[in-house]
Amino acid sequence: MSDAVLLIGTRKGVVVARSGGARSSWQMNPLQLVMSSVYGVGIDQRGATPRLFAGATSEHWGPSLFHSDDLGASWQEPDQAPVAFPEATGASLARVWQIQPGPPNQPGVVYAGVEPHALFRSEDGGVTFDLVEGLYNHPHRPEWQPGNGGACLHTVVPHPTDPKRLLVALSAGGVYRTTDGGANWEAANSGIQSYWMPEDQRFPVFGQCVHKVSCHPSRPERLFAQNHFGVYRSENYGDSWTAVESGLPSTFGFPVLVHPHLPDTVYLFPLQADSERMPPGKHCRIYRSRDLGESWEPLANGLPQTNYHSAVLRDGLCTDGGEPAGIYFGTRNGEVYGSFDEGDSWQLLLDHLPDVLSVRAAVVA
């Protein structure tokens, strides 16, 4: 019988929770990697045994990437730093923001997006990584700026069938893509606005503060992006983007998620910004579109609707890919909610956690 697994990165460590196939009750392991901020977590299900990843930053020991092959019962850190800049770059790792396993046709490939802006690639299942120098040496790099969270490469979107194609997003640099395995990269931001720029400069080639990008593997050319003000869709792998914001109470937010079985269905968690960074109206609501972002509806059943001040960060919204799909989100006040009916209703699964920074989920044997 299959179990569901939640991997939760928090301000004070990583938590693993498990539930039976019904996903009605959850058992949480003790907090591990204690007193480390875990901004990036990942679950690799391509092998015989799932491998969990946690990008942890300790105020004392610094940043590193840990993995677990026993569903979080224990965590390993290689003797040599798994993610490290070559000495010649003069750069040092500040934080691992994203751990993204490659597609099934690249069984050993794992990507790590880090701060300062850089992409690393592993070919041994995430034990050792090499810098993707084509992106690191991009001529735009000197002009990339840090977002409010840092100079982070926070999104990696592997192409499901073409191993030479890959898309990334970084704050604040925008969306970039490669079609030759990472040797060369081009900006892919046409139509995405930088609202803070002078009016005649609001659509630059690069420099946008894209917060997250998501797609469905059956439609890799169709992308959705949550921007620092602006929600966008591309139908051509980033050649151009169109705003899809009708019905949203705010166009600011961090996460965006495409339903794993319904490629036209998308989820967001809007925030009032820039000054507040709280949900509009102080209501905890996920917003769902069933028509590619052309219209949006609030989902509030089971969620707190008064005096709610918390937020969901860019990697705090995820799915387990199950049948029916579980949709989960973690909040900055230590709650994790789940829905098993496409968002029509929600349940509080875990609470009293530290500040939730990242969440991933999977159904495992």
Rank of each mutant, 00 (worst) to 15 (best):
S2Q: 14
A4Y: 01
G21T: 07
W26P: 09
Q32C: 12
Y39R: 15
G40Y: 01
V41F: 03
G42F: 04
G47E: 08
A48K: 15
R51N: 04
L52S: 08
F53Q: 08
A54R: 09
E59Y: 04
H60D: 08
H60M: 08
G62C: 05
S64I: 00
F66N: 06
H67F: 15
H67I: 00
D69K: 07
D69H: 07
L71F: 07
W75P: 11
D79I: 07
D79W: 11
V83W: 06
E87A: 15
E87Y: 07
T89N: 13
S92F: 13
A94P: 00
I99R: 02
P101H: 01
P101E: 01
N105T: 08
N105F: 07
V109E: 10
G113I: 05
G113E: 03
E115L: 02
A118I: 07
F120D: 05
E123Q: 13
L131Q: 07
V132G: 01
V132N: 07
N137Y: 00
W144G: 06
A151D: 10
T155F: 09
P160F: 14
D162F: 11
L166P: 05
G174R: 06
V175H: 03
T178C: 03
T179N: 11
G182A: 06
A183S: 11
E186C: 04
I192C: 11
Q193D: 09
P198K: 00
P198M: 00
Q201D: 06
F203C: 01
F203V: 00
P204I: 12
Q208N: 15
C209G: 14
C215A: 14
C215H: 11
S218D: 14
S218T: 13
R219C: 02
E221G: 08
H228C: 09
H228V: 04
G230C: 09
G230D: 10
Y232C: 10
S240I: 11
E245T: 12
S250N: 13
P255H: 04
H259T: 07
P260G: 02
F269W: 10
L271F: 12
Q272K: 15
E276A: 15
R277W: 13
P279G: 13
K282H: 15
R285T: 10
D291A: 07
D291E: 09
G293K: 01
S295C: 00
P298V: 00
L299Y: 08
N301I: 12
G302K: 06
L303K: 11
Q305V: 11
N307M: 10
V312N: 12
L313N: 04
L313W: 12
L313A: 02
G321L: 08
A325H: 02
F329N: 04
G330T: 07
R332C: 06
V336G: 05
Y337D: 03
F340N: 03
E342N: 15
G343V: 03
L350P: 03
P354L: 12
V359K: 01
V359L: 12
A361L: 05
V363A: 05
V364W: 02
